[in-house]
Computed example of a mutant assay.
Amino acid sequence: MTGAVMTRPATRATRDRALLAGGVLAGPLWVAVALVQGLTREGFDFRRHPVSVLSNGNLGWLQIGDFVLAGLLCVGAALALRRNPHPGLGPVSGPWLLGQYGLGLVLAGIFAADPLDGFPAGTPRGPGEVSWHGVAHLGAGAVAFTALVAACLIATRRFARRGERGWAAYSGITGAFFGVAWVALMASGGQAAALVVFAVAVAAGWAWLSVTLLRAVR
């Protein structure tokens, strides 16, 4: 009986480490799938198109799956963090925001973005029409992006209180960069420079999340 009782916590710890490891891998997976598609799919241009429009066309299921899988991995990592608090994310706010980020990604996959400015091939040039699921996609993105910025800012404060200035600075710079790039993208109406900068900001946000969760795994 005692052996069985001891096995359950060990099994739970192993499962939580696996969930956290999934959160670490979510970012590299999402970026890799989006980058390969962006470089190989006909008509796509990072200077004219947000990554979200890759959800359209014959291979659109790849980006839809990329959103959903990465989101579910983040939700799983959030559940593990509730049982294993991270020093920089905390026992409540961090897991909650990470779960919100993951949920936003899942919804962004379910509600695909609209075709835009010549992509997929055959789509007329220009902004095109915005459908109800396009609006829902934008809303899901807002949920995810807000959660990520908030997580970075909370981590900045918590790391600073612990005297971990390097981690505090990294978290603050990442959150500020992401937030400014997002606002600039919306204000520019999708100008080329803003699209490229935001794509870099998304990759930077994923990198921060991966290395932060890697610390929890270790």
Rank of each mutant, 00 (worst) to 15 (best):
I154M: 11
R41D: 11
A155R: 15
T156Q: 11
G141K: 06
G38E: 09
M6P: 12
V217L: 10
L89A: 13
A26L: 06
L62P: 02
F178I: 01
G65R: 07
R47H: 10
F46C: 08
A121Y: 11
W206T: 04
C74G: 14
A78C: 12
L209G: 13
A121I: 02
W167E: 15
A147V: 02
G102M: 00
N84Y: 05
L29F: 08
A147Y: 06
W132N: 14
L20C: 04
M186A: 15
T123A: 06
T174Y: 05
A13E: 15
D45R: 11
L59Q: 13
L105G: 09
G38S: 11
G109C: 07
A13M: 10
R17W: 02
V106T: 01
G179W: 01
G104F: 00
F177Q: 13
A140H: 08
G128W: 01
G57C: 05
T11M: 14
Y101F: 11
G65L: 05
G179D: 00
L116W: 03
F178Y: 07
I110M: 10
R125C: 08
G139I: 00
G102Q: 03
F178R: 07
A113T: 06
L59S: 15
L138T: 13
P9D: 10
L29S: 07
R215N: 12
A155C: 14
A113D: 09
D45N: 09
L153R: 15
R17S: 02
I154D: 11
W206Y: 14
V53F: 04
G43K: 04
